[in-house]
Amino acid sequence: MSEIVVPVLIVLATIVAMEWVAWASHKYIMHGFGWGWHRDHHEPHDNVLEKNDLYAVVGAAMSISMFALGSPMVMGANAWWPATWIGLGILGYGIIYTLVHDGLVHQRYFRWVPKKGYAKRLVQAHKLHHATIGKEGGVSFGFVFARDPAKLKAELKRQREAGIAVVRDSAGA
């Protein structure tokens, strides 16, 4: 039984941990020294791909690296068995991210505007993330766990009043 339960728990824990990794990466890398890759994601364009999509390649490399570390074919006796399940969790998070962020929020793959529930909250939270102009300030750096939009609007208003962020007029802050 533990041969099934432990790997499933590792995969699920990795998916949850990846939301924190994504939040921290988004806030401190993408809106920091990695802004050069992320900027076009915050600007209007008609391109199918964005430089920002290079971050998906980084995520894929993390997953592939974990699969390699867990593979006896690659690592021999030095293989670390949990790495395979961590790699699967990173892959799972990447799929969730692609469907939620690129698909639902930015509608790159399908058109559906949720009218209620958590899906609507995710869309609202990420739209509020895009309410700032430039890399400074901002709210809602995560991708799957979304805070209450009313609290995010209040935070944007505070940032605008403090001169931390330039907020678009249509943001409601």
Rank of each mutant, 00 (worst) to 15 (best):
A165V: 00
A162M: 05
I133R: 12
V113H: 13
S71K: 01
I95K: 01
K153P: 08
K120E: 15
V105P: 04
A119L: 14
L99P: 01
V166K: 15
R147G: 15
F110K: 09
H106F: 06
I90C: 07
W80N: 11
K135F: 09
L88R: 05
A131L: 01
S65P: 09
V113I: 13
G89F: 02
F141N: 06
I86Y: 02
K116E: 15
R147D: 15
H106S: 01
R168L: 12
S71W: 07
S140Q: 11
V105E: 13
G137L: 00
E136Q: 14
Y93R: 01
H106D: 04
V139F: 10
V166P: 06
L122M: 11
G117S: 06
L156M: 05
K157T: 14
H101V: 00
V105C: 15
A154W: 04
K153V: 04
W85L: 03
L88I: 14
L69Q: 10
M75N: 07
F145D: 08
M73V: 14
L99A: 12
A154R: 13
G137N: 00
Q107G: 07
R158A: 15
K151Q: 14
D102A: 11
W112Q: 02
D148N: 13
A125P: 08
Y97L: 14
G87P: 09
S71G: 08
F143P: 02
L69K: 07
T84L: 15
N78Q: 15
K127Y: 10
A131H: 03
D102E: 12
I133F: 03
H101P: 00
W85G: 05
L122Y: 02
K157E: 15
G117R: 08
R111I: 11
A146P: 00
G138H: 03
N78V: 13
H129A: 01
R168C: 09
V74F: 12
Y109S: 00
G163S: 07
R121A: 09
L104I: 04
S71C: 03
S71M: 05
H130R: 08
A131V: 00
G103Y: 10
L88W: 06
L69W: 11
R147Q: 15
Y93H: 06
G70L: 03
R108N: 12
S65W: 12
S71D: 11
L88N: 04
S140P: 01
W112C: 02
G103T: 04
F143K: 10
R111V: 11
P149R: 03
D169V: 13
I95E: 07
L122N: 11
G70W: 04
G92R: 01
A150L: 10
V123D: 00
G117W: 06
L69P: 00
D169F: 10
W81L: 14
A146K: 03
L152K: 09
M73W: 15
M73Q: 15
G117V: 07
G117K: 06
Y109W: 06
Q124D: 15
T84N: 14
R160P: 06
A119N: 10
T98E: 13
R121V: 09
F141C: 08
W112M: 03
I96H: 02
P82A: 05
A165C: 00
F143S: 14
V105W: 08
L69F: 11
L152I: 06
H130L: 04
R168P: 11
R121Y: 05
P72G: 11
S65E: 05
